[in-house]
Every structure is written in C-alpha cells, then in structure tokens.
Amino acid sequence: MSEPTMRSPLHSFGLSEQAKPIDGSCGVWANELRHLGYISLRGNGADPAFATAASTAIGVSLPLRPCTFASSNGKTILWLSPDEWMIVCPRAQLSALLGSLRQALTDVRSQVVDNSGGYTQVIIEGRNALDVLQHVSVYDFASMEPGRVVGTTFGKSSVYAFRQGNGYRLVLRRSFADYIWRYLVRAAIPYGLGIADLAGSPLPEEGVPI
C-alpha cells in the first residue's frame, strides 16, 4: 500500500495552472482554497464551561449568536447550529488544534471530529460575484451583513456561505465539489469567470502525504 496523499476534489479542473492576478477583465473571480483543516465541534454553547474551554483552546471566542462567525490568526469558527460549530484552520495547525481542543474538553460533554477530508472551500470575488450567488441560491445575498454565515442552497446541493473581504467564501462538501464548481462556472458565463491567483494565501501542494 502506498501512502495516502492529499488531493483536492477539484484537482481535475487544473485551477492552479489557470490562475492569474485579479484585474478588470472578468466579472467574477473564483478559485479553490484547497487543503484547509476542518474541525466539527459540538457541545452546549449555553454551558460556560464548554464555551470557555473551547474558546481558550482555539484562541478565538466561540460565536454564540446564531448565524455568525469569528476569525482570528487565520482561524475561523462558523456557527452552524445551536450546538455545532465548524473550525476552519490552516492544515499545518490542524493536529495541534485537535489535540488542544480534545485536551481542553476532556471533562466537558462535547464532540471534536476532524472533518478535513470532507470539505473544501471556494472563494468568489469580483464585481458580479453577488449576481452569480443570486443565480445559484435562494438566499438573499444582497442583504447579507458582514459577520454572518448562512447554510443555504446551491443548486440542488447546499453550502455554508460567508463574506470575507471583498468577496464571499463557500464551504462545501467534498462529494458535491464537482457539481458545485460546474454549476458556478455555468452561472458565471454572462459575466466572464477568471481563476483568481491565490498567491497571497499559500496552500499545501497537491499530492503530499496526509
């Protein structure tokens, strides 16, 4: 048996080879933020012992208001439901974060699961990014306030979406990545789609051992 290696679910689209710096030539710019760490955290947010221990271990305070997220030091915590959060972190920090969370929550009723193989993230920017999202989802993205994260539809699938900087981030299931990317490419046809250069955020290479 050979060693398992990391491979993006959008590998076959060859996105990195097509990437170019964002300019005015396209209405929509998108790319995949591949190989991030995703941790599913469950527990009772109303229990101060849980919220404090989790916040301390992550280094970001747990967002307790519905449909909000918190970011700091490259880590993002998304509120998914009253007892569930998703922590998104750089892959390099994943195992340390998992360890500190599990240690901090040893005596607290909770669940910490590494979901990194199950999700990926897509970034959408550009002057027509909002138009594309309005095409593909029933959610009113035009009225979405900064700091909000929503789970909503994307075609016949679903994503968690939030605003970051000038654009949007979509957290999606690996098994739907192919469908969602093709849907996005098709929805962006009227505006022109460019593959954004993500040079500012270095990501792990494809094919390295997990």
Binding site: P66, S81, V138, Y139, V150, G151, T153, S158
Partner: peptide
C-alpha cells in the same frame, strides 16, 4: 427559530 432568520421554503 434556531437561526433566527426568515428563509425560503426551499431550504426546508
């Protein structure tokens, strides 16, 4: 009541 928002029927 959990998300505290009005959403389209398609999400449910």
């Amino acid at each position: 009541p959990h998300c505290g928002e009005k959403r389209e029927e398609e999400e449910f």
